[in-house]
Amino acid sequence: MNRRNLWLFFLPSLAFLVLLFVYPFLNGLYLGLTDAEGNFTLGNFTAFFGDPWERRTIWVTLKIALPATLINVLLAIPFAYYMRRGLRGEKVITFFLILPITLGTVLVSEGMLTYMGPKGWLNQFLMATGIVKGPVQFTHNYLGVLLSLVIQGFPFAFLMLLGYISGIDPNLERAAQMLGATKWQIFHRIIFPLVAPGIAIAFCLNFVMAFSVFPSAVLLGQPSGPTRVISIAAYQWAFEKFDFNMGSAIAMTMALIELLVIMLVMIWRQRIYKGASIVGKG
């Protein structure tokens, strides 16, 4: 193939990107900045930020998404570290970890409603073993949404980090050990800096999922109040009140906040990342 015709390879995917992603996005931006008659206005954004009921959805979402993401990534680091050279039963473990990711939020939420309900197996077990006196309310509140995000997000972060950690050259670790480094020093000075980019990306992708939480916030939370997250607000304006201008404005706000967080994490990654010494799968 002539190098001059190289762009032909990328034509289909670029056309796809422009038509189905860039154009709708710009159109969303345009809709967000106009009113129903098509006149330019900041009215949608001022209405969103001016109304405490709408404005607080940002805070509600961050209050669910940030802890969930932190829990997932911080839990995933030691687990992936422990499993970095493989284990017996690894296949079974990874199979069960991949289950909640592939089955999707809707099924997991539906299952959690009964399993963690007042008469579900979990509460029966907790009461039978005397850990709690009465049934614990796991669903229809903040806790339910947080739990669903952890159940789905933890394996995601874990499998991602496992890919990064198992790609680190084991000789680096051996060398450090021979030179007299303690286990903590090996983790802190060798493994962690090398996995930091992976951690940053796992954090970002987990945050993307948690920040746009929708089905579980509706099914497992209290969508009319404590867990009315920003995606519920955007959905209600666009598809229940049929105000696509306002809906687009909220969706754009959501994308902006989310990209802002990702940028912060990427800046952190730039500062900590020293260079690549990843081999093999890395």
């Binding site: 189905l20 996005f25 159109n27 993307v208 746009s212 666009a238 598809f239 969706a251 959501m254 994308a255």
Partner: peptide
């Protein structure tokens, strides 16, 4: 892949 589906889904659905 890094923009949440809900954020681009609403403008996309509008289109």
């Amino acid at each position: 892949m890094i923009v949440p589906p809900m954020a681009y889904g609403i403008p996309l659905a509008t289109v």
